[in-house]
């Protein structure tokens, strides 16, 4: 994959990677919680599921982009000011300065889009059922399968980053999914 140069030169690749994993987890588990809550609550209309998960996806994006941008912009400004002091030079008009302005935007995009994208992918079975391509009765189960598949992908991604045993990471992310699903079911049943 071609990583934008500004992410590489500012060292923001690692941060973007972290945000991607953490926020994808948020998106997947939030969607999973909503799906389970609706299922346990006896709501089987996928129109409601689509609306609820899409609502969460939009909220996650709206929350993730500005917060990510503000945090990263502040961090990069701090870094540039530190360098300017060491170099005794204004770096704002240099490539380094423009990279430091671009990187927070890209990291914020990752921060905002990764949970929403995960939520939208989980909704694919609901969209297909809505279009008549999937059995409506099994939509919840299909969405759960997609959610756990995404968790497995995240596990594989983490294993690749760590350059370690990928199945071990897949097991860990799936386990987190099982714990979240169990807790969501328990809480929904109590409600």
């Amino acid at each position: 994959m071609n990583i934008p140069k500004s992410l590489r030169t500012t060292g923001a690749v690692k941060i973007a990677r972290r945000y991607f994993v953490v926020n994808s987890f948020d998106g997947i588990l939030t969607s999973l919680g909503i799906i389970i809550g609706l299922k346990v609550g006896g709501i089987s209309d996928q129109g409601v599921v689509i609306a609820a998960v899409l609502g969460a996806a939009v909220a996650l994006a709206v929350s993730g982009f500005p917060s990510g941008y503000l945090v990263e912009d502040a961090e990069h400004r701090r870094q540039i000011h530190k360098l300017e002091k060491a170099m005794l030079k204004d770096l704002s008009k240099t490539k380094m300065g423009s990279d430091a302005r671009e990187a927070p935007f890209l990291v914020a995009l990752v921060n905002g889009l990764s949970p929403s994208l995960a939520a939208i992918i989980i909704l694919i079975p609901a969209f297909l059922a809505e279009g008549g391509f999937l059995n409506r009765a099994l939509v919840f189960e299909y969405m759960m399968i997609v959610a756990f598949t995404l968790l497995a992908f995240l596990g594989a991604f983490l294993g690749t980053i760590a350059k370690e045993n990928i199945p071990k990471y897949i097991f860990k992310t799936l386990l987190i999914g099982v714990v979240a699903a169990t807790l969501s079911s328990a809480v929904s049943l109590m409600g």
Binding site: T9, T10, G11, L83, A86, M87, L91, K95, M96
Partner: peptide, 15 residues
């Protein structure tokens, strides 16, 4: 030349 550490020698040489 004085350069910041996060500007790599390779990037500078290539530029």
């Amino acid at each position: 030349v004085l350069k910041p550490n996060n500007l790599t020698k390779i990037d500078l040489a290539k530029a």
